[in-house]
Nucleic acid binder design. Structure first.
Lengths: 127, 127
DNA sequence: ATCGCTGCAAAACATTTGCAGTTTG
DNA sequence: CAAACTGCAAATGTTTTGCAGCGAT
């Protein structure tokens, strides 16, 4: 538990919204001017791995194109990040409101079911 | 409508899953070896803008950290990509199946409500 | 003393852009 | 022919890595 990590954690606790590592860096810099962006990245990883914070999207690394035109949603494996499709019906939920608080106008819903795919469940048994 | 665009479209139609631009490029290359990755990117943008294909995630550019610890989901503006939070209760849904087809083990659900934020609705009136 | 952590700089990716030359309608 | 499109190479932006030195236990 280093000083940098301590301050980083406190700063993040006080922030709002969905900041990028860069944005966190800009704020932390004010308290620890010598901190490096690499350290911010390393610690954010650590926090996410520990479950202290989480990532908004598990698949932000590269763009992925949706080829399946049928109404469906996604099952995303939190281990291996694999995305598989699940039919909207098989999931069976869905609100239908078209206006949400704040005046947001709904076009569609996109559900990520996050969990473990069969392969990673199997791997888990080995641990 | 160029030859490259034609082939690219046909190839993508036949692919499955959620390929990255690189993966599409590797396949198209087999039919049009001289095609460049930049062209693939440009055309994918074009297809997405036209609504022919869509992106799996609207916020894949950079990592975003979730700071809000309360159960909530996201409203993502398809215009400006801004993410705002909405309480799980305010959204009002959610069955709780823990096993899904294919043996996927559910940890949690993450819902993106995609649509237009008030600001972009206002801008839209100007057009 | 040991191990982990930092900061720096370079590397590795992913994506975009400028531009000259080519193709399409 | 004009406008749009391609391929290339360089630029940009994001994240990771190697490593030498510093700090925490």
């Amino acid at each position: 538990m280093t000083h940098q990590r301590q301050v980083l954690f406190e700063v993040m606790q006080k922030m709002h919204g969905h900041p990028s590592p860069e944005e966190v860096y800009e704020i932390v810099r004010k308290k620890v001017p010598s901190i490096s962006l690499a350290t911010v990245y390393k610690n954010i990883h650590l926090f996410v791995d520990c479950g202290i914070f989480r990532e908004v999207s598990l698949h932000h690394g590269t763009q992925r194109i949706e080829l399946n035109a049928r109404p469906h949603h996604h099952m995303v494996c939190s281990e291996c990040k694999t995305i598989s499709d699940i039919d909207e019906q098989a999931l069976g939920l869905m609100p239908a409101r078209k206006k949400l608080p704040g005046g947001f106008l709904v076009e569609r819903y996109s559900v990520d079911v996050i969990g473990l795919c069969p392969k990673c469940q199997a791997k888990g048994l080995v641990h």
